[in-house]
């Protein structure tokens, strides 16, 4: 049981990093960023490229590259479309997603590549009879630090306060002097940093890279956001952990004959939750102002 909980926390942390990265941009500029998955892909292949360097250096470089990629996306693709309808922004992000995927495909080929990034982190430790993967501990710990860091940033820094204001009411924030460019660029930067860390953990868990590796995580991120509820940033994190808990517990306790239906049952569970809480577990009833 405790082992399953740790699995759920670890998986939930991964989902939370992805979901928050998406939710941040959605709440501030109404952007459903499909290309977020490609940030994860870029992160994965960057990690591969820096394989052989000390882990900390490789991770730092990966974060730097992905943040740069996110800022470039903002500057070249989304800034010109700022203020356009949500649909236009969504289409822009689809286009960007396909573009990056195509680029990675050309450069790296379609065949899955494998990389073992973590070395000693792949080991397990024995705690009171339970086998706990060091990787799970690292994922949970690092995500915890990042979430606390984000909370601190949003609460205590001038830029963070402006981001929260912009996330609630962009027009009103501008009326008070908040500069859209800075706030949006910062949001993309944070989103990119979270995607990079998520990419490192994802690759560490699976060990494989493909040009479309970002798709599934980003879809799960969207599911987590809807499950947690729109309109509040932290709801996305809550949704992520609940989604992971559902998934891990079903995996562990479903009779083998039903195991194939795990994902179907996960989504059935989500539908039931949304029936009772149509605005998500922690969402605001009035939804989102764009």
């Amino acid at each position: 049981m405790a082992q399953n909980l740790i699995n759920a926390l670890s998986l939930g942390s991964l989902y939370a990093l992805i979901a928050l990265g998406i939710a941040l941009l959605f709440s501030i500029m109404g952007l459903i960023n499909f290309a977020h998955g490609e940030l994860i892909t870029i992160g994965g292949y960057t990690l591969l490229a820096f394989h052989g360097l000390p882990l900390a250096v490789a991770v730092a470089l990966t974060v730097a590259v992905v943040v740069a990629a996110a800022l470039t996306m903002e500057r070249l693709a989304f800034r010109p479309a700022r203020g356009a309808s949500g649909e236009t922004l969504l289409m822009t992000s689809f286009a960007l997603s396909l573009l990056v995927q195509g680029g990675v495909l050309l450069k790296e080929g379609a065949d899955p590549q494998s990389v073992n990034v973590l070395g000693s982190l792949g080991a397990s430790v024995d705690v009171g009879g339970m086998t706990i993967g060091k990787l799970d501990v690292a994922i949970i710990g690092v995500t915890g630090v990042l979430l606390i860091g984000l909370a601190w940033f949003l609460r205590a820094t001038p830029l963070g306060v402006q981001m929260r204001a912009a996330a609630e009411d962009f027009t009103m924030a501008r009326a008070l002097g908040v500069r859209a460019d800075r706030v949006v660029a910062t949001a993309f930067g944070v989103s990119g940093a979270f995607a990079a860390v998520a990419a490192v953990f994802l690759v560490a868990r699976t060990g494989t890279l493909t040009p479309s590796m970002g798709l599934t995580p980003v879809l799960l991120g969207f599911v987590a956001i809807v499950l947690g509820g729109l309109g509040r940033l932290w709801a996305a994190a809550i949704g992520a952990y609940v989604l992971a808990l559902l998934s891990v517990m079903l995996q562990a306790y479903l009779p083998t004959g039903l195991a194939a239906y795990r994902d179907a049952l996960v989504y059935l569970g989500i539908i039931v939750i949304l029936l009772f809480r149509p605005h998500g577990i922690a969402g605001r009833p009035q939804g989102v102002r764009v």
């Binding site: 205590a156 820094t157 001038p158 830029l159 306060v161 402006q162 929260r164 204001a165 609630e168 009411d169 027009t171 009103m172 924030a173 008070l176 002097g177 908040v178 509040r232 605001r284």
Partner: peptide
Amino acid sequence: VRLFEEMSVQENCEVAVVGCGGRR
């Protein structure tokens, strides 16, 4: 009125100052 509903009254006011470049 368009207050930032999830922020405290104090924070609502602080946005106006940091928005104009003021320190926290």
